[in-house]
Simulated scan of single mutants.
Amino acid sequence: MTPTAVFEPIGHESLADAVVAQIEDLIASGILKQGRKLPSERDLAEMLRVSRPKLREALQTLEERGLVVTQHGEGTFVAALTGSAMLPALLALYERHEPAFFDYLEYRREQEGFAARLAARRGTSADKERISEILQENERAWREKDQLASQEADFALHAAIVDASQNATLIHMMASIYELTRKGVFYNREFLKSIDGTGRLLLEQHVELGQAVIDGDEARAEKAAHAHIDFVEESFRFGIERRRREAMAEKRRMLSDYRSASGS
C-alpha cells in the first residue's frame, strides 16, 4: 500500500490545523510509529492537497509539540515517543541479573497473549492479509536458510499481530520492546535456534500463532502466544543450566590438569 492511501486530502476550510490533527491521529493510533519517515514535503502536500507553506506551518506545530523531528537533508520523522523503555543502566542490569530477565519474559508473555487475543477478535481483512504474507515469508526464509530474512519475518509477525489488536497503547509500548529485542538486548534469536536445532519448532510456533489470528480464534491465538514465550523461557533456562554444567566440567578438567602437572 502506498502512502497516498494513508493521508487524506484536506478540505479548504481546514488547512494547517487539519493537517496537524490528521497526523496526530495517525501517530496516536500507532499507524505512524516512532522513527517512521514522512513522505517528502512535496509529496505530502500533494496527498493532503494543501499548499507547501501551510504544510510547513503544520509540521512546525507538530515539531513544537515533540511529535516529529526534521533532520536537514534527511526529511521529517516521527519522534521517539516511548524512548527505549529502559535506561542503559537498567538494561545492563538485566544482562547481569537473571531474575530480571525472566521478569521481562513474564511481562512479554502476558502482553503477547493479550495482543493475540485482541488481534483475533479485531483484526481486519487487511491485517490478516499482512499476517498471511509474513507467514509465507517466514516459511520461505526457513526453507532457504536465510537467517536475516527469518529474523526480520519473526519481528514483523509479532508487530503485525500487535498492530491488528487496534490498541494504540499496546502498539507503541510493544514497538519499543521489539526494537530492544531486535538489537539483541534481551536475547539472541540464534541461541533459540541452537536449542531448537533446525529452527523448525520456532517456525511452527509462528505459523500456529499467525493462523489462529487469521482464523479469528481468540483462545487459540492467546494459547499460541503463551506457548511461544514459554518455549523462549524454557530454552533459556536450559541454556543457563547447560553453561553452568560446562563451566563446572571445565574447572574439573583444569584441576585435573594441574594435579597431573604437579605430580600429585
Rank of each mutant, 00 (worst) to 15 (best):
Q60N: 15
K33D: 10
Q136F: 13
R252V: 07
V207T: 13
A115S: 15
R237P: 00
M86P: 06
L118C: 14
N188E: 08
E204A: 05
E46L: 12
Y178W: 14
L135F: 01
S260F: 03
A221H: 08
P99F: 02
N138G: 15
S132C: 06
G83E: 08
L62W: 03
A16P: 09
G83Y: 05
G75H: 05
A115F: 00
V207P: 14
A80Y: 12
S150R: 03
R96P: 03
G11A: 09
A115H: 13
T198Y: 01
D163W: 01
G11P: 10
E139T: 11
S14E: 04
L192C: 10
E218H: 13
L91M: 07
R200T: 07
E208A: 15
R140Y: 13
Q205N: 13
R140S: 03
D17V: 06
A80R: 15
E13A: 14
F102E: 09
M173A: 12
S125V: 15
L15T: 08
F77C: 06
A212L: 15
M1T: 02
H228T: 01
V213I: 02
P3G: 01
L62S: 09
R130H: 11
S260T: 05
S29A: 11
M86D: 02
E95V: 00
A85P: 07
A28C: 11
L91P: 06
L148Y: 13
G184Q: 12
F236C: 01
L180G: 15
M254C: 12
I177F: 15
R36E: 10
M254F: 13
S256D: 09
E190Y: 05
L93D: 06
L38C: 08
A212C: 04
V213G: 04
E133W: 13
S264P: 00
F155W: 15
I131D: 05
L87Y: 04
T61R: 07
F102C: 12
G239L: 01
P88H: 06
F191W: 00
F231N: 06
A21L: 11
F101L: 09
L91Y: 09
A141M: 05
P9R: 00
L209W: 03
A120S: 01
F101Q: 08
I214R: 14
Q60P: 13
E24V: 07
A58S: 06
A261D: 06
F231I: 02
L255E: 13
Q205T: 07
R220V: 12
Y107L: 13
E74P: 05
N188G: 00
E139M: 14
S235D: 09
H226F: 06
K223E: 11
F114Y: 14
A247C: 03
S165P: 05
S29K: 11
A18H: 10
Q71N: 12
V185G: 04
E57Q: 15
S256M: 00
A116L: 01
I27L: 12
S29R: 07
D230L: 00
L209G: 08
A247N: 01
E57I: 12
M86I: 10
E106A: 15
A16R: 04
S235K: 05
D217V: 05
K37L: 14
V20E: 02
K223G: 01
A28W: 11
Y258H: 04
L255S: 15
A5C: 04
R244C: 08
S262N: 00
G11V: 09
A221K: 06
V19R: 00
A221E: 10
A21P: 10
T124E: 09
L87K: 07
